[in-house]
Amino acid sequence: MSVTNAQNAKNDDDASRRPEPAEPVLRPDLGVEKRRNLGVGSFILLCVGAFVFLFPFYYMLIGSLQTAPDTSIFGAFPNPANITGANYVQINESINLFRGLLNSGIFTGGVILFTVIFGLLVGYALAQMKFRGRGVVFGMMLLVQMIPFQLLLIPLYVMIVRDYGLADSYLGMIMPFAINSTAVFVFRQYFLQLPSTLFEAARIDGASELRILWQIAIPLVRPAIVTAVLLTFIGPWNEFLWPFLVTKEQSLQPLAVSLANFISNIAGQAGNPFGAILAGACVLAAPAVALFIFFQRQFISTNIGSSVKG
């Protein structure tokens, strides 16, 4: 933890330097800037918050390594006499972890692929092309984000599982999430920040729209692609309800579904049920958390003006 901590502190320094270059050197609390002067109360609040948010994750890891569940206060600290990897073996025997990760990966990867390909196309068209019906497409993109999924649940199940016979298939899993409208919106916003004269010049030079998109626009919005991939990743990787309804066959279930089935059905039969659950939870959580820590900059910065210019 301390390593990431130091790293974060470093990142934090350049992060806070960038937006306010004009700030005087006498930055630390001289009472010049009252707002920046963080009170003790706020700092304690932040620390308590960080503890409340991080402790369950720490406890998840500790619990997954315990031979026998220790729910006393001492159980929250690593105890060399009570450490084992057996829980990971146990969960892997009940639900094939590799298979689950692979299925989650295919499900998530499919959604990301569709979102990036078709999202870039429509995002570029909405931002830099003038055509009849653009307003309708734009309004549609906004409205779609408000459609509540619970209303689509039954008809989608009827259509995809019953009518199209796509139960227990990757396509059936992917379909309702295939193009993430929020990502489309992100693409549009980023493309909109590029000067339209750039594209007009390319058009006059006779470049086709596809070539403009591929050779000019996309290289300029790489951060948008990272942001959109991250945004999109969270959805299907963590999704439970839909793949749970669509996949009954265990060999096709994403890890979230097979772990949930383990929690609700099988866990009781395991020697150390909580250890096994927590071991599975660690495996499910690790890719998302790692990816997020690695790319946290892209996820947070909404203004990418500098990266476009740079």
Binding site: F274, A281, A288
Partner: peptide, 13 residues
Amino acid sequence: VTASVAVVGVWLF
């Protein structure tokens, strides 16, 4: 950013 299914395990515990 973590799957609810994963964190539910810890909360149960």
